[in-house]
Design a protein around this nucleic acid. Structure first.
Lengths: 191, 191
DNA sequence: CGTCTATTTGAATGTACTCAAAAGCGGTGG
DNA sequence: CCACCGCTTTTGAGTACATTCAAATAGACG
């Protein structure tokens, strides 16, 4: 039942059967119904989540009450508000399930225990943070230099297959455009 | 001569005089002339830089050859292409001096040695990475939800006093607008 | 002082937004 | 299983934000 997360670890580090067992024994396991929250603005993010199936989103709510999607997390992605989780400070973002979703989670204290038990994991999570950094940086570059249409194409490439699973209004706020404009763009391009 | 960098460390960790000495002894010291590069697209970023005085910028060059400023680093900031530095992979970005600049630098191997000598530094650099994450996340949110004018105001707040030191075209590409539009905006608002 | 680059200005254009209305779709209860 | 309600998507007209291009002006630097 935890094949996916183990194969995810295997992308960056080799684990012995014993190490795998140690890790699995520390994992919490949980299902979240559609539209339910794993984290709300103002709370401290106490867990890092691995999505086994389903899909999460992280979003920010501005002064006007408009939501802006920062990131999607379909199966095989790791979700958390990095800053809140590692610094143990109130999150500015929300994390919500877009579908019925199953996650494995690790609290910060369990993660730190695991780091002493399986030191290789330090490397894994460092890479994870770096990849997150990379993703954010690419996003900034895309927002600075690309049109909405190019960003849309990039979204489809990054989250291949996800488009048909989530509402267009969510894709629109991820791209930084209005749902109306996304709809028009799709029609024009026959996408 | 290294007061600024020591006060920078002191923002997050307390160091004994001995620890300070160990750190200072590992620092490289260097001056870079205006318009010179510390890192070019495709190279591996071998150092993390602390700006003692002067100003650096990190920018990305797209297919058309247009430059997009990702970040500025005036005095008391740490500059590096995080992903390239920690993963030792070719950088997609450039780092260049906008003014005659003095930096202290640490190679990855020296940094790792320092981590064993002064373990507190692990905490410091973890916070540094988290702050970088935070900055990037705010930038994404700003790009998704704010107008050019609001982003401009945010830039002036974040980099207080920097505006008068650097070319407007650099501010424009940081904001994701054209120099012409920035000029018009400034005039209209009497900013 | 001259050259080169940066900034300003203006007109025409394009990209994306707002608002409002209509159509589509999904879930829920009878 | 159908009908209805609420939310999402589509469509269109009018508008605002930001761009391009070009020319004029101002600044920086050798």
């Amino acid at each position: 039942m935890s094949e996916l997360i183990l194969s995810n670890f295997a992308m960056h580090i080799d684990l012995s059967p014993e190490e795998k067992m140690r890790i699995v024994s520390r994992l919490q396991h949980r299902k979240i119904g559609k539209r339910n929250f794993l984290l709300r603005q103002g709370e401290i993010d106490r867990n890092i989540y691995f999505v086994n199936w389903g899909c999460l989103r992280m979003f920010y709510t501005d002064q006007d009450g408009s939501e802006h999607n920062i990131c999607f997390y379909p199966e095989n992605w790791w979700a958390c508000d990095n800053v809140s989780f590692f610094k143990e400070t109130p999150a500015v973002n929300n994390i919500q399930a877009l579908e019925e979703t199953e996650v494995y989670s690790l609290s910060l204290s369990n993660l730190e225990l695991l780091f002493t038990e399986v030191p290789k994991l330090e490397r894994f999570f460092r890479i994870l943070v770096q990849n997150g950094f990379d993703l954010y940086q690419n996003r900034i570059i895309a927002n600075l230099s690309k049109t909405a249409e190019e960003r849309y194409v990039e979204f489809r490439r990054l989250y291949s297959g996800l488009e048909s699973r989530i509402a267009q209004k969510h894709i629109a706020t991820y791209l930084g455009i209005t749902p109306a404009f996304l709809s028009m763009m799709r029609k024009k391009k026959g996408l």
